[in-house]
């Protein structure tokens, strides 16, 4: 009799712990935050063809200086030298709460992949852009529109490119793409 009782209470005890365990839903017992919405909003748009605005490529000193600055720097926080006329280190952006916040302006960091005159610590993922005018423009191997499109959206020229997309992503505006292109095709010392 006594034995039977203990056996029953044991069974009851086992049953109730299982019930307890089931009560905590283990499928919610850890964090697994959602990332799909973040990714969805961040996706790259399809490749886009652009036509170069009028007067885009210029020999204007300030335009070339801005292009150079964008080419050699990563962002306004990292850049040391004072930016040239018409280019800021920081931009105002709408924060999560709707208030405007100051953020470092992103630049091209083209030097991460391309060597060019005066480059420091240039990478070699992309072709060397030194002597670009003499090698490509003067020989008519490339024209200004090609350079503009390449920087704006390189996928038109090469769908499998490793290069960054700069206009379709709205990282830069048309004028800034013109500044960068003007710098690349400019005569350099």
């Amino acid at each position: 009799m006594y034995n039977k009782m203990t056996r029953i209470s044991c069974v009851v005890a086992v049953l109730s712990t299982t019930v307890l365990l089931n009560a905590t839903d283990m499928t919610k017992a850890y964090s697994m935050p959602d990332a799909s919405k973040l990714i969805e909003k961040d996706l790259l748009k399809p490749a886009q063809k652009y036509s170069m605005p009028k007067g885009c490529i210029s020999t204007d000193k300030d335009s070339i200086a801005r292009g150079k600055y964008i080419f050699h720097n990563l962002n306004g926080k990292k850049a040391k030298a004072t930016p040239p006329k018409g280019l800021a280190k920081f931009v105002e952006k709408k924060g999560k709460d709707g208030k405007m916040v100051k953020k470092p302006k992103q630049y091209g960091n083209c030097v991460a992949c391309h060597n060019i005159e005066g480059a420091k610590g240039a990478g070699n993922i992309g072709p060397d852009l030194s002597k670009y005018k003499a090698t490509f423009i003067d020989t008519k191997t490339r024209d200004h529109a090609f350079v503009y499109q390449k920087i704006a959206d390189p996928r038109i020229d090469n769908p499998n490119t490793h290069m960054t997309v700069n206009l379709t992503t709205k990282l830069f505006n048309e004028k800034e793409i013109c500044d960068i292109a003007s710098y690349i095709v400019s005569e350099k010392k």
């Binding site: 790259l44 960054t164 992503t169």
Partner: peptide
């Protein structure tokens, strides 16, 4: 999947 301000994916740099 390419995304972000520069249109890069992990594969852009790690292929």
């Amino acid at each position: 999947t390419p995304r972000g301000g520069r249109g890069l994916s992990c594969l852009s740099c790690h292929s």
